[in-house]
Write a protein that binds this DNA or RNA. Structure first.
Lengths: 354, 354
DNA sequence: CTGTTAGCGCATTCAC
DNA sequence: GTGAATGCGCTAACAG
């Protein structure tokens, strides 16, 4: 048995569908003070639930927000998703979730699906890529987004605009990755003399590249040489792998007499940093005695790690909110408060181990 | 400018809307080998995107799966969500996300919204509550779900069935919380003589209660007395608070000469355990020297913690998948493989600290 | 203030 | 194999 319809409710209440519609939904003014009650009663007794599909079709607006992330199980994304969710809720919208593993092709498919569902807006999170092999897919993604926008859709983006996208309707929430990485480098350079090594994501991942660039800049500003960059996966596994390699080097060249860390590591995100720490420890090294290490993001779940991880705190939930509000055209009020982060020095980069 | 419609495509291709529909979607057989190409071309040149709302209305099936979680930023839920997402994807469905903070009233609202959107199925995750103050809301939630089911909806539930729900169409994925907690208790009892304390969620949270019950049973089976139970929040903050209290007790009654942990703690989930550990450490206590502690769930992000946390590994992603497949009526094949977990002893409960 | 008439965009009976 | 109607459930102009 299918759900009951507005028509049925109207008939039972002895009114026209239009009237029923008016009282059951937010029309200009609720009609007849007494007729209204009759309709409501009818709806209740029938267990009437408005068909959002039909509503959407009729008023051409779905009340849906599409959210595109690389991996919802990654704490970075899930925290942002929480922000998106809360903003959506405040605006009486539901969020449609799509995960893409970060591949532009999947992102394009997701955007297409959202467009098909006539999502009111789309929020895209996750680093853009400029790798050559992604060029074509990026272009198609951009085309898909442009088409969505030209059909009246709005999109909010965290970080960088989608490569090649040009149409109107984009609202990007800038994240000062580069600047913050510079600050972090400066802070570390002030206390560390060891060789700096950056554990980065694949070359061409914009977020990773930004953080690398900023960090190098900070080092230079402090009069230090550029850090070596190890490119690996942008996840824990990548950090772990890099950690193994670094551990090998440290062990084969460590000065036993030295009481200083042999290296100062900067992993471009916390999850990678944790992976690296795991590898270093497995190889018998100690943090921060043998190597100092810093991350980026300040993932909540990771704050209880010991040694506590030096990192750059980012207001992830707010970022999700801002991107969502922006995609909804509500940015004016919040635009005055741009996203900012703060360098958070903790135990993992202390120079005087207990 | 609105998106182009099927009718426009048909006109441009010089065919009827019906024909266009047949070729652009999976009708029985694609018509005219040559006419088909013409339609496709027309669609492409117009940037046609089928209106899923209209499709859904016409064929009354939305291709949507509703997912209800307490908090998408909680790693427990986000990992399950990943499983839901992947299963949904395999079945060409999109997932609608709703977060509820675990309150039955919000869950009811979410189910209502999903029903309005005519979601093909709904997946509910997160511990049920039997607390008296939730009784009324639980009943309304059950009614909402029953209504949804009687309208042809299917629902998949992780853990316990919703209190009071009776209609057909439910598929619950049982999680052997009690049995696994018993196993855990047995394993710990074999090596620990210290006083056992359970750090639990609010009284009436079914998942928490199950784990408590199972743990107590294991203790009894091992000939040990029942553990004391501290009820607190089902999250990190709760664990932290309980940790503070326990630390106070330990410090005021510790036998300095003893080399054994003063207590063996069981937090009913990993996140609480981590909170407790943080508190204990802040109070100057060491794990597992001063207190042993175990968690439950084996959250991936937490596996790199040191000391490594003894816990019960749960296949969270699979659980999400199973609940989803079940809600889609695809359970026959997978039903043969029930959810199971495994007690994972790690450093946090070792008896011989280095 | 209420009822009538049209679509919203598409899938699907039917005839041809 | 293809085209012409009809309806999915609802909203929004209209008219009354």
């Amino acid at each position: 048995m299918a759900a009951s319809t507005l028509a049925e409710v109207a008939r039972l209440a002895g009114v026209s569908p239009a009237t029923a519609s008016r009282v059951l939904n937010g029309s200009a003014r609720t009609p007849g003070p007494e007729i209204a009650e009759r309709v409501k009663e009818a709806a209740r007794s029938l267990g009437y639930i408005p068909n959002a599909q039909a509503q959407g079709l009729a008023r051409s607006s779905s009340g849906l927000i599409g959210l595109v992330v690389h991996d919802i199980a990654d704490p970075y994304f899930s925290t942002i998703a929480r922000g998106v969710q809360s903003a959506a809720r405040e605006h009486q919208k539901m969020v449609l979730l799509a995960t893409t593993s970060g591949t532009p092709a999947d992102e394009q498919a997701a955007v297409g699906a959202f467009a098909a569902r006539r999502a009111d807006s789309i929020v895209i999170v996750g680093s853009r890529s400029t790798r050559p092999q992604d060029a074509k897919d990026n272009q198609e993604l951009a085309a898909e987004l442009d088409r969505y926008c030209s059909n009246g859709g709005k999109v909010g983006i965290v970080g960088h605009p989608v490569v090649g996208a040009s149409a109107d309707g984009y609202h990007v929430v800038p994240v000062p990755n580069e600047e913050l990485a510079t600050e972090l480098a400066r802070a570390l350079a002030a206390e560390h003399t060891a060789k700096f090594v950056i554990i980065a994501g694949p070359d061409g991942l914009l977020t990773s590249d930004d953080r690398i660039r900023g960090f190098q800049r900070g080092l230079l500003a402090a009069g230090l040489p550029e850090a070596e960059v190890i490119h690996t996966g942008f996840d824990r596994a990548g950090g772990y792998q890099a950690g193994l390699e670094i551990a090998g080097r440290i062990k084969s060249s460590q000065d036993p007499a030295s009481n200083q860390p042999a290296a100062c590591l900067f992993a471009v995100n916390d999850v990678m940093a944790i992976g690296a720490v795991a590898a270093l420890r497995e190889q018998g090294l100690s943090i921060p005695r043998d190597a100092a290490i810093a991350g980026f993001d300040d993932i909540e779940t990771l704050r209880d790690f010991r040694p506590a991880l030096t990192t750059v705190s980012l207001p992830l939930e707010d970022i999700g909110r801002l991107a969502t509000l922006g995609s909804l055209g509500w940015s004016e009020t919040d635009n005055a408060m741009p996203v900012t982060g703060v360098v958070t020095l903790r135990r993992s980069t202390e120079t005087v181990p207990t």
